[in-house]
Computed example of a mutant assay.
Amino acid sequence: MHFEYNLEEIHLAAKYILDSNPHKVVLFYGEMGVGKTTLIKEVARSLGVEGATSSPTFSLVNEYRIAPHEKLYHFDMYRLKTESEAYDIGIDEYLYSGHWCFVEWPENIPNLIPDEHTKVKIFILTDEKRQLTID
């Protein structure tokens, strides 16, 4: 199923993702500039993350608290050259923690992804419009 949205409707896209009952590991696919980080920020806000969120491009992972005992980890695997670099940050511990894990550029760590995950694919329709699919 497809969902189309523009920036003013991004909260509806976040709701669409969460209403799909995704696994805790959510993989975000899409070309550079499609809006993966922007959408992840909105999904994080919908889950209860308060305050500013940012892209973990240089740190590889950002951690956010949702509730007293719940966390969200946001990964950006774009700059990885090998999967062993992901092991260096302890990615396996994050991905199997039971907390939310949102992963941008998961195609750079294909052998590390848990079997139970949800794929969100974002496509550019026009400068203003995006389409997402959930697998």
Score class of each variant (00 low, 15 high):
26 V>F: 01
85 E>S: 05
71 K>E: 09
51 G>A: 07
81 K>T: 14
98 G>Q: 09
85 E>R: 04
73 Y>F: 15
24 K>G: 06
49 V>A: 09
104 E>P: 07
108 N>Y: 07
101 C>T: 11
95 L>W: 01
77 M>V: 08
71 K>P: 06
63 E>Q: 15
100 W>N: 06
57 T>Q: 05
112 L>F: 03
97 S>R: 12
30 G>F: 06
114 P>R: 00
49 V>H: 03
83 E>A: 01
57 T>A: 05
112 L>Q: 12
70 E>I: 10
51 G>F: 05
103 V>A: 11
45 R>W: 00
66 I>P: 02
41 K>E: 10
73 Y>E: 00
65 R>I: 13
54 S>E: 03
108 N>D: 01
86 A>C: 11
97 S>Y: 09
47 L>N: 04
83 E>P: 01
53 T>S: 09
61 V>P: 08
87 Y>N: 13
22 P>Y: 11
25 V>T: 13
31 E>D: 12
47 L>K: 14
45 R>L: 12
26 V>Q: 00
23 H>F: 07
86 A>H: 06
80 L>T: 02
35 G>N: 04
112 L>K: 15
51 G>H: 00
82 T>W: 07
67 A>R: 15
102 F>K: 05
66 I>A: 08
80 L>H: 14
29 Y>C: 07
111 N>K: 13
47 L>Q: 06
32 M>I: 13
56 P>R: 08
63 E>A: 10
107 E>P: 06
112 L>S: 07
97 S>W: 00
50 E>R: 14
